[in-house]
């Protein structure tokens, strides 16, 4: 690996996405070895304001880590649209996401973004691919994110990790969120993620869902926004996307202190099944 593809501007996601839609006939999961780099990206305050409105964050001079993920996401799409990739982003399931905010990042700071893929890992239902993103300001790493996708039915070397997910206990809701049918379109506008599974009933059905599902990263952002004033200037956050949320829909939220940070769950309305599990640690 170690070669780098440098982009001059954020890649348009339409074309990359169209390529990413072409089904892969390969059964072995493979990913490009190069890193995609985009330097000096200025953040758009207007889009940040829109993002904050859609996800529930207060508009501040410092940005949420999920916003930096949104900025890095076109690089994810670009990387997996490469002819060397057999894993397709559309159809792959975003199963976990981990980020570390090393320090508060200002909306005025131009970001140098880089995304690469780690070697696919075996999973009992297919292959796991980690897309590893990094944001730097003048050579200092300010944010790192690892998005793990499951390419179902594909093969990857190694033995699946069978440790399973941490125990979930049903519990009462501390909050109820009502997600309108239009939320998928709203989040598409602020994230740029054009995947029709979030906005079209037909597309959702094609992937086995009765109705469109909200982007997992919206649910993640909304859960983080619910804790906003309790979060320190630097922290790590991990989420498991357990079960998609159909639109329109109603879900429950709860959070509790844990190990100097917070554990939070987005669950079914009755609190018995998790949609998203989040851990925030200093």
């Amino acid at each position: 690996m170690s070669d780098t593809v440098t982009l001059d501007a954020p890649p348009g996601m339409g074309a990359s996405f169209a390529r990413a839609l072409i089904p892969s006939r390969a059964s072995d999961a493979s990913v490009p070895s190069h890193e995609v780099v985009l330097s000096g990206l200025s953040q758009d305050r207007h889009r940040l304001a829109d993002y904050a409105r859609v996800t529930g964050f207060t508009l501040r001079d410092h940005v949420p880590p999920t916003w930096i993920h949104v900025l890095a996401f076109p690089l994810h799409v670009h990387l997996l649209a490469d002819p060397k990739a057999t894993v397709r982003l559309v159809g792959a399931v975003h199963v976990t996401n981990a980020m570390r905010l090393h320090r508060p990042v200002g909306v005025d700071e131009p970001l140098d973004l880089a995304v690469r893929a780690a070697a696919p890992r075996a999973h009992r239902r297919g292959a796991l691919v980690d897309l590893i993103a990094r944001a730097e300001v003048a050579g200092e790493t300010v944010w790192e994110g690892t998005s793990t996708y499951l390419a179902t039915g594909m093969r990857a070397p190694g033995t699946p990790d069978e440790s399973g997910r941490p125990h979930f206990e049903a519990g009462p809701a501390q909050g109820i969120w009502r997600l309108p049918a239009t939320l998928g379109r709203d989040y598409r506008r602020v994230s740029g993620d054009p995947n029709p599974i979030h906005t079209s009933r037909v597309a959702a059905k094609a992937f086995g869902f009765a109705r469109p599902i909200i982007h997992g990263m919206w649910t993640h952002a909304r859960a983080l926004a619910a804790l906003e004033q309790r979060l320190p200037g630097a922290y790590a956050v991990e989420v498991d996307f357990v079960k998609p949320v159909l639109l329109p829909g109603t879900v429950a939220f709860r959070a509790a202190d844990a190990a100097g940070g917070w554990d939070a769950d987005v669950t079914t309305r009755d609190g018995t099944k998790p949609h998203l599990r989040m851990r925030v640690r200093p």
Partner: peptide, 14 residues
Amino acid sequence: AEASNHDLLTAALD
């Protein structure tokens, strides 16, 4: 123009 009363007041308080 894009900020709400909530955003502005929170900024002043913080």
